[in-house]
């Protein structure tokens, strides 16, 4: 790890002032479970590291004054989210946090930090750039953990966030702030992510001097209960990245799905909203066959690389099981 200047601001205004508009000059420290590794491996060599964990505006869970939403501070630790009484009904979020299988990770990682984890692509981590020579190294090399969707361009890594599929399924929105404190934009969480087309872009739309400040979650509406679930196919019971993941939210009335949102993770450079599969669920009761049909639809247009065809099946299974789990049915896999 190179030497760098370190700042620990208390207010959003000073945080933004500390961030450079030049890419790579400053990096945000939001827990450090990912950034520290990137610094150690010298994949990132910022001149200044800005710790956002003490910034007041990024703390706590608040009801948004206009109503209808909860605002989750981006600097909240994952175990705080997990234990927060206002968040009890967001099942998929809890399952995603539990899925990390590491108390240390849950205690140290923050909401914003987790959503902005850099890809684990081993070519990126070895210093070959986010796209690994325009995608060539991945295409010709070992791509067993890489994308099976949206991989025709140079970007072939998979989005690393474990929470994003669950939060996107729950219709979360992201509040982005900067470069000025009053410059604020709210986007659906799926729009935070992008598939970069060249090395000047990262995997989120955040500018170098912009931060993810809050996540807005729609408040549970008593008239239409939302059932949700997250399902990951993991190689082992540790915090290692899953091989495929899915999350879903279902609005069920009298046993029939009225609205559905299925999201795949670990399969594309961004979390992937599976629209066709989601639509297959609407208007029906969830049973094994219906869930399987949706799972198949979710991976119908997969384009696996030379070594990762197995991930197509894993993504299909993850999608099917997330739907079954949300509906309270047995997944058919190991006992959780």
């Amino acid at each position: 790890m190179n030497n760098f200047a370190y700042a620990q601001p208390r207010r959003l205004e000073s945080l933004l002032a500390l961030l450079s508009p030049t890419p790579g000059e400053t990096e945000v420290l939001a827990g450090g479970t990912d950034l520290v590794g990137l610094l150690r491996e010298r994949v990132l060599t910022p001149e200044r590291v800005v710790n956002v964990c003490d910034v007041e505006e990024l703390q706590g869970v608040h009801e948004v004054p206009e109503g209808g939403a909860l605002a989750l501070g981006a600097a909240m630790r994952l175990d705080e989210l997990h234990e927060h009484p206002l968040l009890e009904s967001y099942t998929a979020l809890h399952q995603a946090i539990c899925g990390l299988r590491s108390l240390q990770y849950q205690a140290q990682s923050t909401l914003g930090g987790e959503l902005c984890r850099r890809p684990r692509c081993w070519y990126f981590r070895a210093g070959h750039g986010l796209l690994a020579d325009g995608g060539r190294l991945i295409r010709e090399g070992d791509n067993r953990y890489h994308a099976i969707f949206d991989n025709a361009g140079p970007a072939k890594f998979v989005s690393a966030s474990r929470l994003a599929p669950a939060l996107i399924a729950l219709d979360a929105r992201a509040v982005l702030v900067g470069p000025e404190p009053e410059y604020l934009s709210v986007v659906p969480l799926e729009e935070l992510y992008q598939t970069p087309i060249d090395e000047s872009q990262r995997e989120t739309i955040l500018q170098p001097n912009q931060v993810l400040a809050q996540i807005l979650l729609p408040q549970a509406d008593a008239s239409a209960a939302v059932a949700s679930a997250a399902y990951e196919v993991r190689h082992g019971e540790g915090p290692d990245d899953p091989l495929a993941a899915a999350a879903v939210s279902l609005q069920i009335e009298s046993g029939v799905v009225r609205q559905a949102k299925l999201v795949l993770g670990q399969v594309a450079p961004t979390p992937r909203v599976a629209d066709t599969a989601s639509r297959l669920l609407v208007g029906h009761a969830v049973d094994q066959l219906r869930a399987e049909a949706a799972g198949r639809a979710a991976v119908a247009d997969a384009t696996p690389l030379s070594r990762n065809e197995y991930k197509v099946q894993l993504a299909e299974v993850a999608a099917t099981r997330a739907i079954l789990k949300a509906a309270g049915l047995a997944t058919g896999g190991f006992d959780e």
């Binding site: 299988r101 070992d142 190689h235 082992g236 019971e237 540790g238 290692d240 990245d241």
Partner: peptide, 24 residues
Amino acid sequence: IMDPKTGAFLNSNLANYRLPRLGD
């Protein structure tokens, strides 16, 4: 895991050099 093309040791870190955890 070796990269067939470049000969690089791709998982020379504890994130991708997988080891069992207690739950395994």
